[in-house]
Amino acid sequence: MLKDKKILVTGGTGQVARPVAEALAEHNEVWCLGRFGTPGVEQELIEKSITTWQWDMEDTSGNALKGVPEDFTHVIHSAVLRGDDGDCNASAEINAVATGRLMTHCRTAESFLYVSTGALYARQTLNHAYTETDPVDAVADWLPAYPVGKLATEGAVRAFARVLGLPTTIARLNIAYGPGGYGGVPMLYFRQMLAGEHIAVPMEGQNWFSPLHTDDLVAQVPRLWEAASDPATLVNWGGDESVGVTDCLRHLSELTGVPAKLVRSPVTRETYRFDPALRRALTGPCAVSWQDGIRSTLQAHFPQHVRQLVNV
Rank of each mutant, 00 (worst) to 15 (best):
E93P: 00
G180N: 14
T52I: 07
A119G: 05
L249S: 05
F72D: 01
W208V: 13
L224K: 08
L166W: 09
V157F: 09
D292P: 00
Y272I: 15
W142G: 04
P303F: 13
V148K: 14
A176G: 13
F72W: 03
A287H: 12
G180R: 12
M103L: 10
A138V: 02
I199N: 09
G284I: 12
E42A: 11
L282K: 04
E204F: 10
A156N: 00
P39Y: 10
L120Y: 08
R172Y: 08
I7T: 12
G196P: 09
A176F: 11
L81A: 11
V136D: 01
E154F: 03
Y189W: 15
R158Y: 00
P303Y: 11
Q192E: 15
E29V: 05
R279V: 12
G178R: 01
L8R: 04
P202T: 04
M103V: 10
D230N: 12
A23C: 02
V243H: 08
L24S: 02
G149P: 06
P167R: 01
R250V: 01
H105P: 10
D71G: 04
E241Y: 09
G100R: 14
V306C: 13
T51N: 11
I76M: 15
A300H: 06
G238L: 09
L166P: 06
Q192I: 00
G284K: 11
S265K: 03
S296E: 15
L282Q: 04
A138T: 02
A227T: 01
G37Q: 11
R269E: 07
H27Y: 12
P19D: 09
K150T: 03
P39T: 13
R107F: 00
P179R: 14
F190G: 06
A90M: 15
E93D: 10
L8G: 07
G178E: 05
L234Y: 01
A138F: 03
V263D: 03
H27I: 00
F36P: 08
I175A: 11
P211Y: 03
P211V: 03
N207R: 14
M203K: 07
A227P: 01
D87F: 05
G149A: 07
E132T: 03
H128I: 03
I46F: 00
P144G: 07
H198I: 00
A98P: 02
D56Y: 08
H128K: 11
A156Y: 00
L309C: 03
